[in-house]
Design a binder for these strands. Structure first.
Lengths: 186, 186
DNA sequence: GTCTATAATTTGATAGAC
DNA sequence: GTCTATCAAATTATAGAC
C-alpha cells in the first residue's frame, strides 16, 4: 500500500516547499512544475486556479499535523505538552522554514477566502487539541491558555526564523511549559 | 514645523498600507504611485529598488513604534504593560491590519537581507524595552519572559487577523498580563 | 522631480494536439 | 494527463525629455 505518490501529491508537496520558502504570493505554477518535472499547464490540469492549489497545500499540511497530534500520548500532561511543542521545533529545525500556517496567516488579508478558511481550521485544530488536553487534566478547557500557547509558538517560529536564532523558540517553549505546569497543578 | 509631508514620506506611508493590506510581495510600485498621485518612475526616483523601499517602510514603522514606547510611563509595571499591549490592539483595530513586522517576519525567507535586518531590529527594540521594564521592577531582565510576550502578541495578531476575531488578542493579552503580574510580585 | 515610453521578465490561465 | 504554444496582464527597472 506504500505505492508511489501520485503526481497530484508531488505537486502539493513541491508547492508547500515553495510557499514555506518564500510565501504564497511568490510561489508560481512554473516553479512548482519545474520542481516535479512537468510543464505548468499540467499543474493547471490538477489545480485549475492558484486558490485551488493553496487550499490543497494547507489541507495537506493540516492532515499531517493532525496525524502527529493523534500520535501523542496524552496520559501525562507535561509529556504531552513537550511532544506538542516538539512539533513546532521540528517545523523550524528539520524543514528550515516557518510553519506553513504562520505564513498563510500573516498573508491572510491578501489571500483567497477559501485558503484563509483552511488556515483558520488549522489553528482551530490546534486549539481544540490543547483544550482537550487541559480538560482532561484540569477539568476545564482553559481556552485562553490554549490560545496563548498556539499564538506564542507561531509567533516564536516567525521571530526565530527572521533572526535565524532557534533559542527564541526554545525560550518561549520553556516559559509556556512553566505556565502550563502551574495551571495543571494549581 | 508641522509642514506638509514630503513626497518621500507620503510614498513610505502608502507603501506601508499596501504591505499591511496584502504582503510585501504583492505591493507594487504602480499601486503605491497611484495612491500618492504620481507615476511609478517617480517612486523609483526616491527608492531605486524594492529592497530600498522595504527598508524604509520598516524603519519608519519602527521609528513610530519607538516613539510610542518612549511615551509610556513605566513607573507602575502593570500600567506600563497595559499601555504596551494596547499598541498591538491599536495595530489590529484601528489599522485593521496585521503588525507590519509580523508580515515581514513571516515572509522573511524570501525577502532581501537588508529588509530582514530592519525587521530584526524592530523585534529587538521590543525585547529591550520589555527587559528594561522587568529589570526596573524585578531586578532581572527576564529575557525569556520578554520573548514570550513579544512572540505571543505577534502570533495573536496573525491568528486574530486570519479569523477576523479580535477576542484572540484580548485573551492572549489577559493571559500574558497574569503571567507578568505573577513574575513581578513573586 | 516628474514625466512618457519602453525594455525585459514573469505571472496565471487557456486552447488544442497527442 | 501531458504537451506546445500562446495570451493578456502585471512586474521591476531604466533612458531620456521637460
Amino acid at each position: 500500500m506504500t505505492s508511489e505518490p501520485t503526481m497530484r501529491d508531488r505537486i502539493v508537496q513541491a508547492a508547500e516547499r515553495r510557499v514555506r520558502a518564500s510565501g504564497f504570493a511568490e510561489m508560481s505554477f512554473r516553479d512548482v512544475a519545474t520542481d516535479v518535472g512537468v510543464k505548468s499547464a499540467s499543474v493547471h490540469y490538477h489545480f485549475p486556479t492558484k486558490a485551488d492549489l493553496g487550499v490543497a497545500i494547507v489541507a495537506n499540511y493540516a492532515k499531517r499535523f493532525s496525524q502527529a497530534l493523534d500520535g501523542i500520548d496524552t496520559s501525562d500532561p507535561m509529556t504531552a505538552f513537550d511532544a506538542y511543542a516538539a512539533l513546532y521545533d521540528v517545523a523550524l529545525v528539520v524543514d528550515e522554514a516557518v510553519c506553513l500556517c504562520a505564513i498563510m496567516g500573516a498573508e491572510s488579508i491578501g489571500l483567497p477566502q477559501t485558503v484563509n478558511d483552511q488556515t483558520r481550521a488549522f489553528f482551530q485544530m490546534n486549539l481544540s487539541w490543547l483544550e482537550g488536553l487541559f480538560q482532561r487534566h484540569t477539568g476545564t478547557a482553559q481556552a485562553s491558555l490554549a490560545r496563548l500557547v498556539v499564538t506564542a509558538l507561531e509567533g516564536a517560529i516567525i521571530v526565530a526564523s527572521n533572526a535565524q536564532d532557534r533559542s527564541v523558540l526554545a525560550d518561549v517553549t520553556a516559559e509556556l511549559r512553566q505556565m502550563v505546569a502551574l495551571r495543571i497543578r494549581g
